[in-house]
């Protein structure tokens, strides 16, 4: 699958128009290599700069944070006027700290970023609490601002922002969608023709054995309990939510696993698998096979030689250096090898 060729809109820089002369290409490639070598050298040097910057960031950030915390704690017992003024000062400082974080983001590690974001959130929460407690009636904030923004809002804007309470009935989902729902204790199969390039949905299945031959565009699974689900190569992502005590075997481009417990995943993933709010999820390389698997890999566009099954990111476990306790690799001797029904 050539992604570039499909970019029909000819978006800006995308797409190579016309044929380059071979010589031109060679020259370009040579130049690129030289530049790449240079870049690598620079990257090496800038890495140590980045580390220094990270340290500078952390210490500055922590000092600022401590001074805001001090401001906030000075509010206890103070009278109304003092609290108002102190809170205002704290808010301005918090905004500056936010700005500092925004400006520093480029060189921070995920861990540092997350830590700083958490700290900011805490500051905002505790100043909101103090405000609530000390100044219960008067609404604090930079309200005056909304005047200026009125000017740029939609012309028909005489009513306030949209109400949030409307419930919208969405067209009956499952009937038109390819997949299975609300089944217990059965074996379910779909053929390559049925599956071909479809978006497949499996919901509310208990104690079922599911075989999806062929290559779907995407696969969603929700509320799966004690099932065995095997699927051919999925060209984009697989999205799993609320799955337990099950065995899955899937090739895909991305795997996104949520709220899942005690489930074994035999995986082929060409980019990454992530878990969020999961525990007891274990992984092994995809090992199911069926006669047209190779053709289906071709249909899906997935690279059969690239499998990152063991590189799982836990979005709830960001401590640097310590592996997530929420997933494991299935030991080789425990891996399932016989997939007969």
């Amino acid at each position: 699958m050539d992604a570039k060729a499909e970019c029909t809109q000819g978006i800006g820089v995308a797409g190579e128009s016309g044929a380059f002369k071979i010589q031109e290409r060679l020259q370009k490639r040579h130049q690129e290599r030289a530049e790449e070598a240079e870049r690598r050298k620079e990257a090496k040097e800038s890495r140590s700069v980045a580390e220094e910057k990270g340290e500078y960031f952390s210490s500055t950030f922590d000092t600022e944070r401590a001074s805001i915390e001090e401001l906030l704690s000075s509010c206890t017992g103070a009278d109304r006027a003092v609290v108002t003024q102190t809170l205002e000062e704290a808010t301005v400082k918090t905004l500056q700290l936010q700005k500092f974080l925004n400006d520093s983001m480029l060189f921070l590690t995920q861990y540092e970023l997350r830590r700083a974001q958490d700290a900011l959130q805490k500051l905002q929460t505790s100043s909101a609490e103090i405000r609530e407690e000390a100044l219960p009636k008067k609404k604090f904030a930079f309200r005056a601002r909304s005047k200026a923004t009125d000017k740029v809002s939609a012309p028909e804007s005489d009513t306030p922002a949209a109400s949030v309470s409307t419930k919208v009935a969405v067209a009956p989902a499952v009937s038109v969608q390819c997949g299975f729902s609300n089944m217990n204790n059965v074996c379910l199969t779909k053929t390559a023709e049925e599956i071909h390039k479809q978006d497949v949905l499996l919901t509310h299945l208990t104690n079922c054995k599911v075989r999806l031959f062929g290559s779907p565009s995407t696969l969603h699974m929700k509320h799966i309990d004690s099932c065995e689900i095997l699927c051919g190569p999925v060209s984009s992502s697989v999205f799993i939510d609320h799955c337990r005590d099950s065995t899955l075997a899937i090739p895909c481009q991305q795997l996104r696993t949520h709220n899942t417990q005690d489930t074994r995943v035999y995986l082929h993933v060409t980019s990454r698998a992530i878990i969020e709010d999961c525990h007891g999820v274990s992984f092994a390389p995809f090992s199911w096979s069926y006669p047209t698997l190779k053709e289906d890999f071709i249909v899906s566009g997935l690279d059969q030689n690239r499998n990152n099954w063991s590189q799982v990111d836990d979005f709830h476990w960001l401590a640097a250096g310590t592996p997530s306790p929420n997933w494991t690799v299935i030991p080789e001797e425990d891996r399932k090898t016989n997939w007969e029904l």
Binding site: A3, V13, R114, D313
Partner: peptide
Amino acid sequence: KKFNGEDVSTISPTLGFNIKTLEH
């Protein structure tokens, strides 16, 4: 990435954020 003319087949789920600066 598509808008920027990059390969979209290798994209991993985003932890954090991406920033792109481009001229248009």
